[in-house]
């Protein structure tokens, strides 16, 4: 039995390429990018009742608290002190309060001078506290939030899918 003619038989690779590029795109979009404001050093506790952020909570301030109770500042929040040294973490509640008061003032300025001074601040504070941090370190930070005028404070936790 002989094949007639000299036509080459080539597989059509274009649909395969389309599929592969779609898969590449999927994995690129799902890649675990490091979020700017969160710290991977913080191991969060688990909670079942944890809810996702809503659309109304578009202004957020993340406070990443490590197991020693220090607040690790995101790159955008780091600032230089009077001696020109870059402050990367806030080591006590007084520093946290100073930082939050500055952010609160920025919040008020952003809303405008016409806004009511007693109105709640627009930002929600999200505390990402390491699961091994003792309460004596966490509570002064919560209290500093309240003193700075923030009334909406949320604890961040990993969503635990188990029922109990």
């Amino acid at each position: 039995m002989s094949h007639g003619g000299s036509d080459k038989c080539e597989p059509n690779l274009v649909p395969l390429l389309d599929l592969v590029l779609q898969l590449v795109m999927f994995f690129m979009l799902c890649a675990n990018f490091v979020l700017e404001q969160t710290s991977v050093a913080i191991v969060l506790p688990k909670a079942i009742a944890a809810k996702a952020l809503t659309q109304a909570e578009s202004y957020t301030i993340f406070l990443n608290v490590d197991e020693k109770g220090r607040v690790l500042l995101a790159a955008a929040d780091q600032y230089k002190d009077s001696e020109g040294r870059v402050t990367e973490s806030l080591d006590n509640a007084a520093q946290v309060l100073t930082f939050l008061r500055r952010r609160a003032q920025e919040d008020r300025n952003a809303v405008g001078a016409a806004a009511n001074a007693d109105a709640p601040l627009r930002s929600v504070i999200i505390l990402r506290v390491h699961k091994l941090c003792p309460f004596e370190k966490t509570y002064p930070i919560m209290f500093a939030c309240r003193q700075a005028g923030y009334t909406r404070v949320q604890l961040r936790a990993l969503f635990d899918g188990s029922t109990d």
Binding site: A50, L53, R146, T151, Q154, L155, R156, A157, L158
Partner: peptide
């Protein structure tokens, strides 16, 4: 997946 738990802060 991370989520939030709302707290009622102590009065100041």
């Amino acid at each position: 997946t991370e989520g939030q738990i709302a707290l009622a802060l102590p009065q100041d």
